[in-house]
Simulated assay, not measured.
Amino acid sequence: METYEPSTLADARAEQATDGRWTLVFIRDFPHPPARVWRALTKPADLTEWAPYTADRDLDTLGPATLTMIDGDEHVDIAVEVTQADPEHTLAYSWGTDLLRWDLAPTASGTRLTLRHTVADASWVPQVAAGWHICLDVADRLLEGNPIAPIRGNKARAHGWDSLRDAYATKLDIPTDEAN
């Protein structure tokens, strides 16, 4: 595999919801048009190249789907419900007990992606940020036509996940338990 070095930290913040859950707001600019970024977020053939999961169907329509989390040889199916699919603008779905919302906005040089990933506990936010950071770096390489293999699960630890988790914990002012 070609050498991977994490990009600089993304624009990110943590917000507490009224129900006590926490949302990571993760913003990343891509020098690619919204149509291409949308395809990477919704098409199984693209998702398998960068995401921590594969999808059993296109995610560009409402309704149930199955995302299969991949960690080495371990595969875990998670039922999801696509609740919003506005092509090239917004994709939202449940992911187990988590909620994900991907918003795309055209920019002069490509697309601004804003991911809102809601989790049960604040301690998960830096971990989620580190994971999405690596996945979106891999997605960017795919979009630019210079793909590298997906970096998923425990494999991410060998590619800077721990350092990213700690850096996001500091940036977001959320203590982290290094045993995770």
Rank of each mutant, 00 (worst) to 15 (best):
L115N: 07
P87N: 05
V119K: 05
D77Q: 12
Y93V: 02
Q84F: 00
R116M: 11
L136I: 01
D86I: 11
W132D: 09
H89S: 15
V82A: 03
Y93S: 13
R116V: 02
R101L: 00
G131M: 09
R116E: 14
H117W: 09
T107S: 10
G96L: 06
V80C: 13
D98E: 14
R116S: 13
V80M: 05
T90K: 07
H117F: 12
D77K: 11
S123T: 13
T83Q: 08
R101V: 12
V82R: 03
R141W: 01
T83F: 04
T111W: 13
P106R: 09
S123H: 14
H89E: 11
D137I: 02
L104V: 01
L104R: 05
P106H: 12
P106V: 07
D121C: 00
A139I: 06
V128A: 13
A105W: 03
A139W: 01
A92H: 03
T114Q: 15
R116F: 00
V76K: 09
V119Y: 07
E88L: 01
L104K: 05
P126M: 10
G110A: 04
A108K: 14
T111S: 10
A139N: 10
G110N: 04
G96R: 04
A85Q: 05
L91E: 10
L100K: 00
E81D: 15
L91A: 12
H117I: 12
L142N: 11
P87Y: 07
W124Y: 13
H89K: 15
L115A: 08
T107M: 07
V82I: 15
D86N: 15
Q127V: 07
S123N: 12
I78V: 15
A122F: 09
I78N: 03
L115H: 05
A85I: 12
L115Q: 05
Q84R: 14
D140I: 00
W95V: 03
T90F: 02
A130N: 03
D86H: 12
A120V: 10
P126H: 07
V128P: 00
L115R: 06
D137A: 01
G96P: 05
I78L: 14
L115E: 07
W95T: 04
D86S: 13
V119C: 10
V119G: 07
L99W: 00
Y93M: 15
G110W: 01
D77S: 13
